[in-house]
Simulated assay, not measured.
Amino acid sequence: MAQTGQITADTTHVTAVAARMRAWDARWPQTDGVAVFNRVYLRVTEEIGREIGAGGFPDVIAAQTLGARFAERYLDVVELVAEGGRPPACWRPLFQYRGHRDVRPLQFALAGINAHIGHDLALAVVDTCRSLDCAPRSIEDEFDRVGEILGTLEERIREELMPGPDLLQVADPLTHLLGTWSLERARDAAWSAARVLWSLRELPDLAEEFTERMDAGVGLVGRCLLTPWR
Rank of each mutant, 00 (worst) to 15 (best):
Phe95Trp: 14
Phe95Glu: 02
Phe95His: 13
Phe95Tyr: 15
Gln96Val: 06
Gln96His: 11
Gln96Met: 01
Gln96Ile: 01
Gln96Pro: 00
Arg98Met: 05
Gly99Glu: 10
Arg101Ala: 15
Asp102Ala: 13
Asp102Gly: 06
Val103His: 02
Val103Ser: 01
Val103Asn: 08
Val103Leu: 03
Pro105Lys: 05
Pro105Cys: 11
Pro105Thr: 04
Pro105Trp: 01
Gln107Gly: 12
Gln107Cys: 11
Gln107Arg: 05
Phe108Asp: 09
Phe108Trp: 06
Phe108Gln: 10
Phe108Gly: 05
Ala109Asp: 06
Ala109Asn: 13
Ala109Cys: 14
Ala109Ile: 15
Ala109Leu: 15
Ala109Met: 14
Ala111Arg: 03
Ala111Val: 15
Ala111Leu: 08
Gly112Trp: 13
Gly112Tyr: 10
Ile113Ala: 14
Ile113Gly: 03
Asn114Gln: 07
Asn114Tyr: 04
Asn114Leu: 01
Asn114Arg: 11
Ala115Val: 11
Ala115Asn: 11
His116Lys: 04
His116Cys: 14
Ile117Ser: 04
Ile117Thr: 12
Ile117Glu: 10
Ile117Cys: 05
Ile117Trp: 02
Ile117Lys: 02
Gly118Lys: 05
Gly118Asp: 05
His119Arg: 15
Asp120Phe: 07
Leu121Lys: 07
Leu121Ser: 04
Leu121Ala: 03
Leu121Arg: 11
Ala122Val: 01
Leu123Cys: 11
Ala124Ser: 14
Ala124Ile: 05
